[in-house]
Nucleic acid binder design. Structure first.
Lengths: 341, 341
DNA sequence: TAGATCAGTGTAATCGATTACATTAAGCTT
DNA sequence: AAGCTTAATGTAATCGATTACACTGATCTA
């Protein structure tokens, strides 16, 4: 009935012990007598005690949380990674703070910098490789700011641990597959070129093409990973004099926008043009034609990021902790690619 | 260089004022002289002061955060709502704590109950209508626990504010559309029947059918909103002696799994069967055939949930605050539905 | 001009849990 | 049995920001 909040003091009085004992009984049960433990637990139960997180955080100088910088939550690519992060964080008794780096409130380094403080987070996972440089270069104070790891994209100065998909190899697998099918003129719809994922995939694709002496792709078009940009790429493709017989799209979403628009305009996939995507999103296997693509383990990216972070937090970091952890990719062959006739 | 954390005390000493003045200059700048403000700001700047969130939370007895209970982050439906929540929360200077209610760590009411404490959150948004009853019935202490609002699904005892899509009307629009096209035998692939969204949509659909004296649907199949369950529904549909000429799927994901499998088996959509979905996910307009569906404003659900919550937090709640806020839906007609021939 | 008002600032209490250090009592050693 | 070790508990300091209350001096009122 009483509106007053129940503190450890109330529990102590109720159980007839000191506050120190209550704290101990609750957080390190083995450090008190079974009898005391029992009576404290009962007291906590019957008073309806709930620990005050802020008080604990203040005293212990840690927050029990990790913050995750996400560029775009509505993008299923990121939300899957986030899902992996959440699960792994829960397993490590951390809760997760979500910060959208594209939110207008967070458009400047200042707004984000405050999360780089141990009173906010025990650690930080960054999914956005395009944060203001200033943030990690000047606002990050080693030894004071909490550990940081990159969870899929990353920024050039490799001074933080990171996990990433093997983007180069993924692109290589895609191109090799197309070349293996006899394609000679292979186009590439890239992601935005300011993004590392895009440039890595582009580099991988170009390297694969070069290896086969097939020359650079005849046609290259910059998208932004969105379905709409895939559609636009298709519009452009349709105007081409000599159309590539195969196109590698740097994301499934673009691949689907691309195929959809082509089919609408009477161009058949894979009969007229083969298409390979990247990501293996859920819809890929159910689109018609089912999309040949590069599978990447998104939940696993999230989990690995948490594991790296926990190592850094607990100081178990390996010597080469900053060497990027690269997760394997797989080529999934479906119906959108076909040998050239 | 010094490893010691910089507190308000250091800033005070540096600026030659008291800690109280520093606090005031930082949080209510108008309450101090321009001159003091300037020197405090400079002192903060040059000492590299960062406010300790835990200390502030403890003293102010609030957390500056809202927690969101999400059943499944990898589901784009929820992640879009979450995106809306994040944006709106940022606008209100709240950060968001993410809690996955399906995580094995959170399988019991105890684990979730701790977030129902003002030391964790100034408010709680629940996207999962299927939480343990116990949680909100016994563990929630009005006046002590922070305000709660439901952000899309909800639980029967309507003692909390809620936002929801007009699921009944959405289903009615879908069915009416099909009836208008001359369909007489209309099937329904429902969501899981323990879920309110499913039962509401089912009720709406049945009401619409009844209104047209068309009787109950000849065929009804329970899915779980997933693409795989849509595929299974298709398998079942194919075995039917007299196949419905139209099927309403309670989610776009199921609709796509359903259509995909049908098409694979030589059944044409919309020539042989019309299909209507629900949600209007991104892919809906690009799938082939483009999916006729019920559009719901997912980001807006999130925003509204935050608005309701802020009202509750600030005590501006309207008298009828607990009356559910119902967001409108729209029928989007695309290529997956067609008049009966 | 005495008294009231008010803006600006300082002093010190406060939020609630943790934990260093002190204390007590019980068990052990020789 | 005196001295030592150890387990269990208590006392009180501590984490860092906010804010109630007190104080000062300046401006205003009658």
């Amino acid at each position: 009935m009483s509106r007053k909040t129940i503190t450890i003091k109330d529990v102590a009085r109720f159980a007839g012990v000191s506050t120190a004992t209550v704290s101990r009984a609750l957080s390190r049960p083995s450090s008190v007598t079974p009898a005391t433990r029992k009576s404290v637990l009962e007291a906590a139960q019957s008073t309806g005690y709930q620990m005050n997180q802020a008080a604990r955080n203040l005293r212990k100088q840690q927050s029990g949380a990790i913050v995750v910088f996400v560029p775009d939550l509505s993008n299923p690519f990121f939300s899957h990674i986030l899902s992996g992060i959440e699960a792994a964080a829960a397993r490590n008794d951390k809760s997760v703070f979500l910060v959208n780096t594209y939110s207008p409130q967070n458009d400047n380094a200042d707004a984000l910098a405050r999360y780089l403080s141990s009173s906010w987070a025990d650690g930080v996972i960054i999914l956005d490789g395009s944060l203001p440089k200033d943030l990690l270069q000047n606002r990050y104070v080693p030894g004071v700011s909490p550990p940081v790891v990159f969870g899929c994209e990353w920024s050039p100065p490799d001074k933080f641990p990171s996990v990433r998909t093997d983007n180069r190899r993924g692109a290589k697998l895609a191109i090799d597959h197309l070349i293996g099918l006899g394609h000679k003129n292979i186009g590439h719809v890239t992601g935005p070129l300011w993004n590392v994922l895009s440039t890595e995939r582009l580099a991988g694709a170009n390297a694969a093409l070069a290896a086969h002496a097939a020359g650079l792709p005849a046609w290259q078009c910059e998208g932004d990973f969105s379905m709409a940009s895939g559609t636009q790429a298709a519009t452009q493709y349709l105007t081409l004099d000599t159309r590539p017989t195969a196109v590698f799209c740097a994301s499934d979403t673009m691949a689907i926008g691309f195929m959809s628009e082509l089919i609408k305009n009477g161009v058949s996939v894979p009969d007229d043009v083969s298409v390979v995507g990247f990501d293996d999103i859920d819809i890929a296997e159910r689109f018609i034609p089912a999309l040949t693509t590069i599978h990447q383990h998104r939940e696993h990216l999230g989990e690995s990021a948490v594991n790296l972070l926990m190592n850094a937090i607990n100081g178990n970091a390996a010597d080469d902790a900053n060497a990027p952890l690269v997760l394997p990719v797989e080529l999934i062959i479906r119906d959108s690619t076909k040998a050239i006739s």
